[in-house]
């Protein structure tokens, strides 16, 4: 690991200024991906700007319209929140199964979303529920936020402050975890929302994506059988030592069926 300059600003404005000023600045939330990446010399930031000192970014608010989670809220806090479990049980359960207990004690929703790992869990929840990403500059719909692998709509110096999730009529997330890393080989988030049925897939492709055919089928009738015959094309999916693209394509249908059944 190469050395870097470390900053721990007290406000979002100061953090944004610090990262913009640096020649190769990196924002750090929980550090669960950034620190391993720097250790492996896959990243060599000149400056690391730690968001851990900004109190405004922490906390969970739940009201009739939905759940708003501050960017620096840890997975363990979302998993343990009785308010989240009541409003959107699938979201609390998803958070409870990210990584392991120690990762959940450090990793944050903002960090996970900004990193956009193709196998991360939270992107599926954001797209599946039609969430909104709040930044220091604007609000971005989840459908417009996630771009390609590890790419998002965030601009330089733009910082996620919170994510808000509308309450769904029902929702569930099912993942087939890689047994070593516990990242999703395939994870499917399904939700019956005010805007219709949504099906979001993580782990299978280069980034989170929706399966419109499944959404249309669930719109006509919510049942596991409705999605049982719908396959996604294997063509663009991930192919690696853990699973072939054909296997992942198969898992999408299996996990979708299980998620629809679990949502009830």
């Amino acid at each position: 690991m190469y050395d870097f300059a470390y900053h721990k600003p007290k406000s979002v404005a100061d953090a944004s200024a610090a990262v913009k000023k640096a020649s190769e600045g990196k924002l750090m939330a929980g550090g669960m991906t950034l620190i391993p990446t720097i250790k492996q010399r896959l990243a060599r930031p000149s400056d690391v700007v730690d968001l851990g000192g900004i109190g405004d970014l922490k906390g969970i608010k739940v009201d009739a319209s939905g759940v708003t989670i501050g960017a620096m809220t840890k997975h363990a806090e979302v998993a343990a929140s009785a308010d989240v479990a009541k409003a959107i049980p699938a979201l609390a359960k998803l958070a409870a199964n990210i990584g392991d207990a120690q990762v959940r004690n450090r990793g944050t929703i903002g960090g996970s979303v900004a990193n956009n790992d193709p196998a991360a869990d939270y992107p599926a929840a954001l797209v599946g529920l039609g969430a909104t990403v709040h930044t220091n500059e604007r609000k971005i719909a989840a459908d417009d936020f996630f771009k390609g692998m590890f790419e998002t709509a965030l601009k330089d110096g733009e910082i996620i402050t919170a994510v808000s999730f509308p309450v769904a009529k029902k929702a569930a997330y099912m993942k087939f975890p890689n047994p070593a890393s516990r990242y999703a080989m395939v994870g499917v988030f399904v939700a019956d929302t005010a805007g219709g049925a949504r099906v979001a897939v993580t782990g299978a492709g280069p980034g989170v994506f929706r399966v419109k055919d499944m959404e249309a089928a669930l719109g006509k009738g919510w049942s596991a059988d409705a999605v049982a015959g719908i396959k996604v094309p294997a063509g663009g999916l991930n192919n690696d030592i853990h699973a072939s693209r054909e296997y992942r394509a198969h898992l999408v249908t299996v996990m979708a069926k299980r998620a629809v059944a679990a949502a009830g």
Partner: peptide
């Protein structure tokens, strides 16, 4: 709370 000390900077524990 339990954390992995290999994935946390000393300065983060200030």
């Amino acid at each position: 709370v339990s954390v992995k000390a290999c994935t946390m900077l000393a300065v983060q524990a200030e």
